[in-house]
Simulated scan of single mutants.
Amino acid sequence: MRIINLGEAEGLPPVDWDAVVRKLEGSAEPAPDGGNTRTTWLTTLNEDGSPHVTAVGALWHEGTFWFQTGATTRKGRNVARDPRCAVAVSIRDADVVVEGVAMRVTEPDALTSIARAWADQGWPAEPDASGAGVTAPFNAPTQGPPPWNVYRIELRSATVTLGTDPGGLTRFRF
């Protein structure tokens, strides 16, 4: 991993990636009096190259973000055509943006693992019997009918902005 301290000119120390990962793994919510929430935002690329940004139920699991979507949704069509994407989320004392490539997951063990992780967070997902993705008793109406495709983001970079004193702004290249 290459670490680029974007706050060095202001005398800020580099952000500790391992501390950020511990917060992502622990689902560290933003501060109760903070102005943000734990919404995870996914950006994909439309056919004309413009960004498409939408809130998703992405989950940090096994060292990266995972998300699911119907094949006919705009984000589903976008990542099928161009898998480059970004995820942004606020966690306790930090804002995190990761960039990478969305890789479709169909391996049974991986689908079982992520479905269990989503179920542990309150969304009762389970692998679809067809092996195509996951299913659940409910999802956002815009996702279309199950099974929903599952994607794992292969991380290329992350930018983390700390909201604590002394703060920090660091880019990580993986």
Rank of each mutant, 00 (worst) to 15 (best):
R2V: 11
I3L: 12
L6K: 00
A9T: 09
G11Y: 02
G11H: 03
L12I: 04
P13F: 01
V15M: 06
D16I: 10
A19I: 03
A19F: 07
V20T: 11
V20K: 13
V20I: 15
L24P: 00
A28W: 02
G34Q: 07
G34E: 08
T37A: 11
R38H: 11
T39P: 07
W41H: 14
L42Q: 02
T44I: 10
L45K: 07
N46R: 15
E47H: 08
S50C: 08
H52Q: 14
H52W: 07
V53G: 13
V56T: 12
L59K: 08
L59S: 12
L59T: 13
T64F: 00
W66E: 11
F67H: 05
G70A: 03
A71W: 10
T72S: 14
K75W: 01
N78G: 01
N78L: 05
N78M: 11
R81W: 01
P83Q: 12
P83N: 14
C85E: 03
C85I: 04
A86R: 11
S90I: 01
A94I: 03
A94Y: 09
D95M: 02
D95S: 06
D95E: 11
V98Y: 01
G100I: 05
A102E: 01
R104M: 13
E107F: 09
P108E: 10
L111W: 11
A115I: 09
W118I: 02
A119I: 01
W123L: 12
A132G: 03
A132S: 04
A136E: 04
A136G: 07
F138L: 12
P141Q: 03
G144C: 06
P147L: 15
V150I: 13
Y151N: 01
Y151F: 10
Y151V: 04
E154C: 12
R156N: 10
S157D: 02
S157N: 04
T159S: 10
T159H: 05
T159I: 00
T164W: 07
G167C: 06
T170Y: 01
F172S: 02
R173V: 11
